[in-house]
Computed example of a mutant assay.
Amino acid sequence: MLTNMRFLNDNDYKKVIRQWIKNLISYESEDVLEDAELAAQSEMETYLVSRYDTQAIFNTGQEPEQRSALIVMYLVDMALYHLHANIQPNDVPEVRENRYKQAISWLKDVAAGKISPVLPVKVIVPGEDNTGNIALGCNPKVSERF
């Protein structure tokens, strides 16, 4: 579940990209940057939502040091990839493409249960509709009898 507030902040980018390059690829527009971040966050949530509480993970009210360093790092990599792809999709810098692929690989391993990061686990409440949780075996039984 996405919110309209940014999860990432400008300091999160300083470790991996120079400010002037970030300004250049985002057209010095907060809207362009925010759109790339939200696209990356939405993409990341698709891998995490079946096992983890994505609302708690991406809580924008958290202090920066309370956020998962891995989530922040991979989300920055994914957002930067989307920003570069927005400019020239066929000519994304190799470092951005590699870091994006590494992020997706990590997310696939998390979704498959091969990696268990320290993140808030999704709580399944008995009596609630959990039909979308295939990984947790909560789909309703289907009869093939007529």
Rank of each mutant, 00 (worst) to 15 (best):
A85S: 05
L83T: 12
D31S: 06
V95K: 13
L38E: 02
A39S: 11
V49A: 06
I87K: 04
E63H: 08
L38T: 08
P89C: 10
Q62K: 08
Q88D: 14
P89T: 05
P93S: 08
V32M: 07
W20I: 12
I25K: 11
L38W: 07
N98Q: 15
A79Q: 04
P89D: 02
E65R: 13
E45M: 06
L75T: 02
R51S: 07
M78N: 05
M44P: 00
N98E: 15
F58I: 08
A40T: 03
Q19F: 06
N23K: 01
Y74Q: 11
I71D: 02
S42M: 08
G61N: 14
K22Q: 10
A69C: 12
E94W: 13
D53N: 11
A56V: 13
Q88E: 13
N86G: 08
S68I: 00
N86W: 09
N98S: 12
E28N: 14
I21V: 13
Q55P: 09
I17V: 10
A36T: 04
L83F: 12
Y52A: 05
Y81K: 03
R96H: 09
Y74R: 14
Q55V: 13
M73D: 15
V16A: 02
D77R: 07
D91I: 01
K22M: 12
N23V: 01
E34P: 09
T54S: 10
I71R: 00
T60Y: 03
S42P: 03
R18F: 12
Y81H: 09
V76I: 02
A56S: 15
L80K: 01
Q66V: 07
N98A: 09
P93G: 02
W20L: 10
S68F: 00
A56C: 14
